[in-house]
Design a protein around this nucleic acid. Structure first.
Length: 422
RNA sequence: GUGAAUGUAGCUCAGCUGGUUAGAGCGCCGGCCUGUGAAGCCGGAGGUCGCGGGUUCGAUACCCGUCAUUCACCCCA
């Protein structure tokens, strides 16, 4: 009905809901800090090249999902579709990799040009962590446990954690060759899209949902058989460490992830409560990424979690609703214009004492004002009308017991402070 | 990019096979109650029926297009 609406795939987040976001953001900050990560904020847009090579041509993100445009200076700019590549770019730009390990976390909007549906938007929100300079599986384990801690803190218990190893560059190359050989012999039985993928990105056929592809894959060579000794040990140790922390992870050899930069460990957290887009979290190790972006040979591992989907899960398990903070403590109730103005300095003083206070400026009747005050969750109302004003007083009413007391205007702030502390 | 369903008040929805000034519940505002929160009763505001075209004497309804939403595919957070 209104003529201008928010662009397709974007939403306005309105007041009761913004409290949930603030709660989620606070949890992320707390947990990440507790694990030794510090926040980094990078630009919403980057030079297009930041994403193309690292994520990989042939991936859907690069081929059809990026918001790319030429700015007024003729530069190709892209709204970030993820944050690992920008974080690496920033780390290199500011020589942050001289002090290892480097542990960073982020949260904020990402943009992908996709058809919206349940759990998928053109502007979405992710938080994530990146750990540089830690090649061992302890770092992988730490990151997975960090992600699960945030989920736990917001009350999400219904999920599935799956892990896999893609091997290092050497073993992946051998596996890739074997896989291509097998697929070429069975190309006729593959789905059309997978036949197309065979040439461009064959590993992605592994996690295809098409039953024809799954049928073909059931007889395909598996990554496990091609892992070198070092990669095997890395993966086995990771599983041992997770188990030692009481974390249950399922080994799913078909997980490959949609970005090209992963090596060795990859993992996903998904939930059946989300609909078709059932993944809340994805991550893994990217030991060659920093080097490929022109930096030193530094290992990395990280995760990204979808905040929009996390809140969907928190709501479906019924645990996030009470996070709507009704923080008002004092409601000022003036009964006429002169009283409104007499209360301005009084309310100011109360607020200076750190007490959350608000006044109804609409000149409504006392009935309506008290009703609103009661619904707001405030503990006291401060009422001033002609009668109180004549005596330089105010009526303080306890909104729960309805008990009323008269105090001098000058005493309102100290009286309220005293009462709220008790 | 493909497919399907749906667009009527702030919200949830009626509106019979096309027929005059488009309705309800909830919410909002006001009154009953000249200064105390409930319930009830009474009243009020709020709609270019998503938008554009077509058929018709007449369209919220039928047809075409378009935009948006929802769900699914693809893929992912």
């Amino acid at each position: 009905m209104k003529h201008i609406a928010a662009p397709r795939g974007t939403v306005d987040i309105l007041p009761p809901e913004t409290s949930e976001w603030q709660a989620l953001e606070a949890i992320i900050d707390e947990v990440a800090t507790r694990f030794g990560y510090r926040e980094i904020r990078t630009p919403i847009f980057e030079s297009t090249e930041v994403f193309v090579k690292p994520i990989g041509e042939g991936t859907d993100i690069v081929d059809k999902e990026m918001y790319t445009f030429v700015d007024r200076g003729g530069r190709s700019i892209t709204l970030r579709p993820e944050l690992t590549a920008p974080v690496v770019r920033a780390a290199l730009e500011h020589n942050m990799l001289q002090h290892l390990p480097l542990k960073l976390y982020y949260r904020g909007p990402i943009f992908r040009y996709e058809r919206p549906q349940r759990g998928r938007f053109r502007q979405a929100h992710q938080w994530g962590v990146e750990c540089f300079g830690a090649p061992g599986p302890e770092a992988d384990a730490e990151i997975i446990s960090l992600g699960l801690d945030v989920m736990k803190a917001i009350g999400i218990t219904d999920y599935r954690l799956e892990i896999n190893s893609l091997g290092c560059e050497a073993c992946r190359a051998r596996f890739r060759e074997a896989l291509i050989g097998y697929l070429n012999r069975n190309v006729a039985r593959l789905s059309e899209t997978s036949q197309d993928r065979l040439a461009r990105n064959p590993l992605r056929i592994l996690d295809s949902k098409d039953p024809r592809d799954q049928d073909v894959m059931s007889g395909a060579p598996t990554m496990d058989a091609y892992l070198c000794a070092a990669c095997q040990e890395h993966f086995a140790t990771l599983r041992t460490l997770l188990e030692a922390m009481g974390i249950r992870a399922l080994h799913n050899p078909h997980i490959v992830r949609g970005l090209d930069y992963y090596t060795r460990t990859v993992f996903e957290i998904s939930s059946s409560a989300l609909g078709a887009q059932n993944s809340v979290c994805g991550g893994g190790r990217y030991d060659d990424l920093v080097k490929s972006m022109g930096g030193p040979d530094v290992a990395g591992v990280g995760l990204a979690m979808g905040m929009d989907r996390m809140l969907m899960l928190a709501r479906s398990s019924g645990l996030a609703r009470d996070r709507d903070g009704k923080s008002l403590q004092i409601a000022f109730v003036p009964l006429d214009e002169a009283s409104t103005r007499a209360l301005v300095p009084v309310m100011h003083e109360v607020r200076q004492h750190g007490i959350a206070a608000d006044m109804d400026y609409t000149r409504r009747s006392i009935d309506k004002q008290l009703r609103t005050a009661g619904e707001s969750g405030a503990r006291y109302a401060v009422i001033v009308g002609e009668d109180e004003r004549r005596n330089g007083e105010a009526t303080i009413q306890n909104l729960a017991t309805r008990e009323r007391t008269r105090v001098e205007l000058g005493q309102v702030a100290s009286e309220l402070t005293r009462r709220l502390e008790v």
